[in-house]
């Protein structure tokens, strides 16, 4: 599993208290007991961590874990440095990247 997916799993387990064995790439967020507010919170968490303009208007709990990861991949420029770039690096974020450094 790449960095984005590893981090996503960590967030789901550590912050959202999802049992680790339930977190698969195919799992839908609703099946992980994330309601609509929790999904927006997840997007906010990822937005801050990766410093990307993740649009929570697209967030819904029918998405799978992999759907979310692919959206993050896209914003990080996945095919170049994205997966291994680590959090909060302005250089790897695309144009219009989020406001200010992550973890501020």
């Amino acid at each position: 599993m790449d960095t984005v997916r590893e981090h996503l799993k960590t967030v789901l387990v550590d912050k959202f208290e999802v049992p680790a064995d339930k977190v698969t790439l195919q799992a839908r967020l609703t099946d992980l007991d994330l309601d609509s507010l929790a999904v927006v919170e997840l997007y906010l968490t990822l937005q801050e961590h990766w410093n990307i303009p993740l649009d929570d208007g697209d967030a819904n709990n029918e998405l799978t874990v992999d759907d979310v990861a692919r959206t993050v991949d896209g914003l990080l420029g996945a095919d170049t440095a994205g997966h291994d770039a680590g959090p909060g690096t302005e250089q790897t974020a695309g144009p219009g990247a989020g406001p200010g450094p992550a973890h501020a």
Binding site: E41, L44, E48, P99, G100
Partner: peptide, 11 residues
């Protein structure tokens, strides 16, 4: 104040 409305938690 730091990052605008995008930083506001739905909770």
């Amino acid at each position: 104040l730091k990052s605008g409305a995008t930083a506001v938690s739905p909770h």
